[in-house]
Amino acid sequence: MSKQEQEKKLHIEVQDLTMAYGSFVLMKDLNFKVYEGDVFIIMGASGCGKSTMMRHLIGLNEPAKGDILYRGESFVKASASGREQMVRRCGVMYQSGALWSSMTLAENVILPLKQFASYSDREAESIARYKLSLVGLSGFEDFYPSEISGGMAKRAGVARALALDPEVLFLDEPSAGLDPLSARRLDEMILELSSNLKMTTVVVTHELESIFLIGNNSIFLDVNTRTLGATGNPKHLRDHCENPMIRNFLRRGELNAIGD
């Protein structure tokens, strides 16, 4: 870990986390730290539990063992209301946007604003317009989710995640299923937003281009050993990781290292 990273403030810390569905252990003994302002990538092969990891971080799944700390405060042991407070400081974009289909894009953004912040109708509308502009969707306020494309739904999902000015933004597979240009634009938007809004961003993805473009820290979940494969800057991992399997993953299999 570089010196610069150590100076940064700790934001999320995961200690000895075990994730399980019933008696089936998905991942065990996970330990990692996310620092403030990081764009943190959770990567791994399909089905290794990346999305489940994210679901644990935002409290949708209970850990079988271990703890998750936000700014040193335990999320797992927190009371129900304490948890709610912590979750409200997180914005989440789900894989396909998960926009509420009976509401327009603006209404999707306004709902959290009206529920959890004391804005007047006019102010909330104005903020919704602004958030949608940030993700490049100005003028689409009155569209319904069924009327826009998949990429736009993802961006609208980001706008909704940003509604309450979260401290942490979680993005589940932001660039999956998009054409290369849209994917790149979305990645650039994520970078812009994370640097301008001073948020910590946690991204679940296995798109290599995204990983190298936006990530400055990462964990690799190893599906074979069912635990943490490696942690660090993805570019560094690609070039210097001791585990050949991970180097291979990050080079799209061009390094045929597993047989070595």
Binding site: G136, S138, L197
Partner: peptide, 17 residues
């Protein structure tokens, strides 16, 4: 910070009705 956020918000053209 405000300048770069405004730039970001104005980057994409507004869709006309």
């Amino acid at each position: 910070q405000a300048v770069s956020l405004m730039r970001l918000a104005l980057a994409a053209p507004k869709k006309e009705k």
